[in-house]
């Protein structure tokens, strides 16, 4: 049962990361995000804030039952947690009335890099999931 919940959460997480990455496409040309893409990005990030910690707890329980070895899935899991944390934390700092415009630009830049690292972790996670299914 736990395994299925873990898998479902992993899939949900991957789906959210896909949406979040796709909506940043408009900013690749150097433009800031705005309008509908930003709205979708904000909505999806709200879902990520709830999904990632739940997945991290379930995944940790599952991880404690597995062999501690460098499988693709494990790397994907820990990568998601490790890069998800700064992705969320940078946005959280932006939401507090403490960061100036310059600081906020810096935080947004870190958010973007952490977010792209999370995307890579999500890709590894998907590969790990597929491998586990095949095995």
């Amino acid at each position: 049962m736990m395994l299925w919940i873990e898998r479902a959460l992993a899939m949900l997480l991957v789906g959210l990361v896909v949406v979040l990455t796709a909506t940043t496409a408009v900013s690749w040309g150097g433009h800031g995000m705005s309008g509908l893409p930003l709205l979708i990005h904000m909505g999806a990030s709200g879902a990520l804030v709830f999904t990632l910690p739940v997945y991290a707890i379930i995944g940790l329980i599952g991880f404690s039952r597995r062999h501690l070895r460098a499988s693709m899935y494990n790397i994907g899991f820990w990568g998601s947690v490790a890069f998800g944390l700064p992705t969320i934390a940078t946005v959280f700092l932006c939401m507090l009335p403490i960061a100036s415009t310059d600081t906020m630009h810096q935080l947004v830049s870190w958010h973007a890099w952490a977010g792209y690292a999370l995307t890579i972790a999500a890709v590894v996670l998907v590969i790990g999931l597929l491998r586990r299914k095949v095995a």
Partner: peptide, 20 residues
């Protein structure tokens, strides 16, 4: 309210990472 949820989320992720 959402700010509190994010703070909670960050706390959980930090704990998971520490345990890991």
């Amino acid at each position: 309210t959402f700010k509190y949820f994010i703070a909670g989320s960050i706390a959980i992720l930090v704990c998971v990472l520490m345990i890991g």
